[in-house]
Nucleic acid binder design. Sequence first.
DNA 1: ATAGGCCTGGAC
DNA 2: GTCCAGGCCTAT
Length: 263
Amino acid sequence: MPEGPEIRRAADSLEAAIQGKPITDAWFAFPQLKAYEPTLVGQTVTHIETRGKALLTHFSGGLTLYSHNQLYGVWRVVKAGEQPDTQRVLRVRLQTAEKAILLYSASDIEMLTPEQLTTHPFLQRVGPDVLDKKLTAEQVRERLLATSFRNRQFSGLLLDQAFLAGLGNYLRVEILWECELAATHKASELTEAQLDRLSHALLDIPRLSYAARGKVDDSKHHGALFRFKVFHREGEKCERCGGIIERKMMSSRPFYWCPGCQT
DNA sequence: ATAGGCCTGGAC
DNA sequence: GTCCAGGCCTAT
């Protein structure tokens, strides 16, 4: 479950479980991280930061654990000593007196010094995070019109973490549906009103998904705060215009849209 | 801009 | 077993 809102919610629950609590045991599956196990015992997690889909666990000693869940990584919070039955392979375990946090399946895990935080290839290239409260629609609008972004098709642009961090495939299709825009359009072709609408949706839709606290509805379940309009709805009727939702690969991910109103 | 590779888990 | 996926990197 890995787009920006899901990663930030995971970070919230990890923080709630162990932030500020002395670490009683640390365990890493990867050999290159083994040396940090004794180092971390007695330290605390000061805070857990997210930059788009990257999650940064900051320790009181100054080190930071970088993890990226790609499509498959998953964080769990359990009681100390517990390890739930799962087919997934355990990669990280940080334990405190009461609770432990576990990272399963992720393959992209590194320990970074403060210096390395500023030179890490992914962290260095990501753009502003759509969930950052300080990021405004006006700033997003300027970014859309920046020379390096204004002539790129939305299909690729919205997946590029260098443009904005935290968007992924479901957000890209839902944002473009919301704005009635085709995937082949570019910022340079939009009217002022369209630019305005898009710059707001680029922030509002991820924030709405985050606020839904996981109640993202993939299958027409009632009462969900955030309901997909086109994602995984190929062949269904568009609720805005009645057109039939289509699907095709774009920028090597499945793209869903309504040909009736996204023009 | 696009294709292919990498990684992992789930659906079939 | 095969293929796909809410991701990302590198090579072309």
